[in-house]
């Protein structure tokens, strides 16, 4: 087995089955699913987190997407996606490959985004919010100026979880004649080419680690300076003399 050989072969860097194309497919599919899940999960999570209403209903409903195995979900969605093709007017090929995978991944990505948005907002100190309201911040300003910055760490944490799950699940999606890096693994097995299989595994793992690293960086950047890690601002210690200085 020669995994390095696979990467060194120029043929594997070109054409529709080349690494760049598969990588872009994988990323595009994952990005689409995370964006769709964000569009659904984030507003709901922020609403239930800010108001405290309908929280159990929303969280339990969203967890269905987590409870059903994603491959089973794709298979179950396959006939629906095919049947809907003539009704909604998209090509049946899309119903066969992209749509079931995309929908399953979206359903999988919604719970962490929704639950973390909720949990993040609930974690903000109630006294702080009352102080804000008491000074005349409007609800919109409470959300924008207090809840979002203070919960940003937890909210972005939800994106990290969702993104990693989506990148992993996109690999399985290759079974349904989808694209992405999973193709190397599926094809490696079916063509009995272990090089291809392991190269696929290495590529998916590397992608997951790199994306997670970038998101971790973004998470830190989005967390307000004063709340980052143990070192608070400059120094982080009390002024010499403390109360006596006043």
């Amino acid at each position: 087995m020669d995994v390095f050989g696979f990467f060194l072969d120029p043929a594997n860097w070109q054409g529709p089955d080349g690494i760049p194309v598969r990588l872009v497919e994988h990323l595009a599919l994952s990005l689409a699913a995370v964006l769709a899940a964000t569009a659904v999960g984030l507003p709901i999570g922020l609403f239930i987190g800010h108001t405290g209403r309908f929280a159990n209903l929303a969280i339990n409903t969203s967890n269905i997407g987590r409870a059903v195995p994603s491959f089973a979900l794709m298979v179950a969605l396959l006939p629906i996606a095919l049947d809907l093709a003539p009704v909604l007017g998209y090509p049946p090929a899309l119903g066969l490959s992209f749509l079931p995978i995309f929908l399953a991944m979206t359903l999988l990505a919604i719970p962490p985004i929704l639950v973390n948005a909720y949990a993040g907002l609930r974690s903000v100190d109630r006294d702080l919010l009352e102080a804000g309201r008491g000074q005349g911040l409007r609800e919109r300003q409470i959300l924008r100026d207090l809840e979002l910055p203070l919960a940003s760490n937890i909210i972005v944490g939800g994106f990290r979880t969702a993104t990693l799950q989506v990148i992993a699940t996109a690999t399985i999606g290759a079974i349904l004649s989808g694209g992405g890096l999973g193709r190397y693994i599926i094809d490696g097995v079916s063509r009995n080419q272990p090089d291809r299989l392991f190269a696929g595994a290495v590529l998916v793992t590397t992608l997951a680690l790199v994306v997670d690293g970038l998101l971790a960086l973004a998470q830190r950047r989005l967390t307000p300076r004063a709340l980052r890690g143990p070192a608070v601002g400059r120094g982080g210690s009390l002024p010499a003399g403390g109360e006596a200085a006043a």
């Binding site: 006294d127 702080l128 102080a131």
Partner: peptide, 22 residues
């Protein structure tokens, strides 16, 4: 309600300073 609150100073025991602001 917003205008009312902005015209009334409010101090609570827990102070409720915004930790992410200077």
């Amino acid at each position: 309600i917003t205008e009312l609150r902005r015209s009334i100073g409010y101090v609570i025991q827990q102070v409720g300073l915004f930790p992410h602001q200077t």
